[in-house]
Design a protein around this nucleic acid. Structure first.
Lengths: 179, 179
DNA sequence: CTTGACCCTCTACCAAGGTGGATGGTTCAG
DNA sequence: CTGAACCATCCACCTTGGTAGAGGGTCAAG
């Protein structure tokens, strides 16, 4: 199968297929005498898998690692197995969170408006409340940002000093002077 | 509360808070005479909500829309309600998908290796197979790419000229010199 | 009155995940 | 044989969600 047909079958752009190959998500395709790539039929499933997994919040990096293990058909030994176990835990946490959001959303649809006149929306509360159990959440869009009340030692991250509230009826000349 | 304290409490960078304000995810903070932002205590919950929702695959754009509705405390009328209903359907599909992945992953951990010697990994199959029911999956990382066997009417339809890339050592016949 | 921890604005830049264009070779129908 | 529809390469650019730094004001303690 040529690249165009593969792309058409999955519903992605040709350039995306090439991008995936370059990124190591697809095995380097064999080439004909004309230099054209020739893809096996199984690549349809594989590309479809990539798209679906991406929608579920897996990054291409994770997928690359995962597919590499799958391709090697290597036994699931120590490190990889441990990684899989961690992924499973993440997955469970994630499913739990999404279920909470679903519950809140269902409640919402049963009511007439988002929030009781005072206080925030139940969905905001459901997700925004203090974390009760620090389950290692490092999935999906987890960036390398500081996590849950840790000291963010970068850019305006030092220590100490607290001056919690307003109390400055002072001079009104600054650069901004906006209300 | 000043920006630094808010950032510290949630565990994000100060610049991230400013970024959220600029992106319309937080209401524009009131300013003191010195120009410093002054945040309400409820912003802690709100920012925490944003982080958690992001981890769950919501984009900042979705969150902006959602929070706007929540802030207005407007009744959930036609369009917004419809949107919420669609989100709920997406959510259900997503939870179902993640559950499938979880099942596959559990199976995987019970076995010794990823796949039976022939054929691909069960997880790849579980996600990569032909879509059976075209439920509108437009969540999480859904980009504006072509979808499911549509004609990707972009790229590969025109030609033109360029000037960069000088002095290429073009081979007599082909550029790629096949494998 | 200086120092250091804050705060402000603005501009640049980064990584991920592509998208699009320029330039050119290949294939096939008419 | 010609034109379109493909295929190839490389390079530039876009969006998202931030980060980092320059340049400078504010404020409390020493």
């Amino acid at each position: 199968m040529r690249i165009g047909e593969l792309a058409r079958r999955v519903g992605v752009l040709v350039v995306t297929i090439r991008f995936y190959e370059a990124e190591g998500l697809l095995p380097v395709a064999t080439r004909g005498d004309n230099g054209y790539r020739d893809f096996a039929a199984s690549m349809v499933t594989r590309v479809r898998f990539i798209r679906r997994a991406q929608e579920l919040g897996f990054t291409l990096g994770e997928l690359r690692g995962f597919l590499a293990v799958s391709d090697l058909r290597a036994p699931l030994d120590g490190e990889v197995r441990e990684h899989a176990r961690r992924k499973l835990a993440d997955l469970n946490a994630r499913i739990g969170d999404l279920s909470r959001v679903r519950g809140a959303l269902e409640t919402l649809l049963r009511r007439r408006r988002c929030a009781p006149p005072e206080g925030p929306c139940p969905i905001v509360l459901a997700l925004g409340e203090e974390p009760r159990q620090p389950s290692t959440r490092t999935m999906g869009s987890a960036k390398r940002g500081a996590e849950s009340s840790e000291k963010p030692r970068n850019k305006y991250g030092s220590v100490a000093s607290n001056s919690s509230n307003v109390g400055r009826p002072s001079s009104p000349r600054t650069k901004w002077t906006r209300a």
